[in-house]
Amino acid sequence: MSSENGSKKDVLLEVKGLKMYFPITKGIIIQRKIADIKAVDGVSFSIKHGETLGLVGESGCGKSTTGRAILQLYRPTAGSVLFEGVELTEMKGETLRRQRREMQMIFQDPYASLNPRLTVGNIVGEPLEVHNLAKGKERQERVQELLKLVGLNPYFVNRYPHEFSGGQRQRIGIARSLAVNPKFIVADEPISALDVSIQAQIVNLLEDLQSSLGLTYLFIAHDLSMVRHISDRIAVMYLGKLVELTDHIALYEEPLHPYTQALLSAVPIPDPYIEEKRQRIVLEGDVPSPTNPPSGCNFRTRCPRAMDICAEKDPEWKNMGTPENEHWVACHLY
């Protein structure tokens, strides 16, 4: 594949053929596996240093599972995850724990992801202690520094999560993930639980932190307009597989995959004149079950342009762009 030709040095993270199956079992005493939920079914991409890769798709498409499997929060069923050239899927115990300093996660729900019984100081300071990075007064200072960094008042250290609004809590979650000075952050729908007027505040914060700390993001979301705003390149996922991957301009200006085209056309635009004239591609039906995905191309059951071959053969993942401006797509139309 031509992605191999890109200068290898730039690549921070490389995911190859990642699969994450969850077994469905039957029986109480003797559990037999009767099927698999194929949450992620062979996903490959790479992320360069300092880049933001957006991962979009609808609920249940496996985008969050991909993020978690990369961080080894789930152990992948198959495939490889190389972080700075080091294989993560074979790491265990202490080695893996030390590796996690390099890669952190920001969660979707700022209400569920903070322990309500810990003060903000303890929440943000805990990673420092777990990784033996700072103790006592030094820890205290570092926590205050982190709170300042994410735009919170450093005097908040002794308060509890319930005293904060959703946006402020998300800032606490971001401060916690930054505590160990990571290189790579998986942001799993970090703004979708927040109000519109607050979302922009958090997105701006994430962008500022990226430029000041040189972070690399995997930004998982379902909101295409926000993903385009923050991402350099965007991967579109459907039912456990990537259907298209390219830079943020090409994806919006010339989407190739019929699913990407439908997704883009479904996003409402805040302008009544445009909305009146707009031709929408309305997809029929629902996403099929990942336990029993359709044969051939996953998307063919809802695809307005499905052909006979789509039911027989899984479409190849190929580069329709140039080696410099890659445009990957998995569709028999191309």
């Binding site: 519109v196 007027s197 607050i198 979302q199 922009a200 505040q201 997105v203 701006n204 962008e207 295409l224 307009s225 926000m226 385009r228 705003h229 943020h248 301009i249 919006y252 883009l264 996003v267 635009i269 805040p270 302008d271 445009i274």
Partner: peptide
């Protein structure tokens, strides 16, 4: 404060 899909990528969002 919301980016628009039909407009070019804005440099920075203007939050409230």
């Amino acid at each position: 404060s919301v980016p628009r899909l039909d407009m070019g990528k804005s440099k920075r969002l203007i939050p409230i």
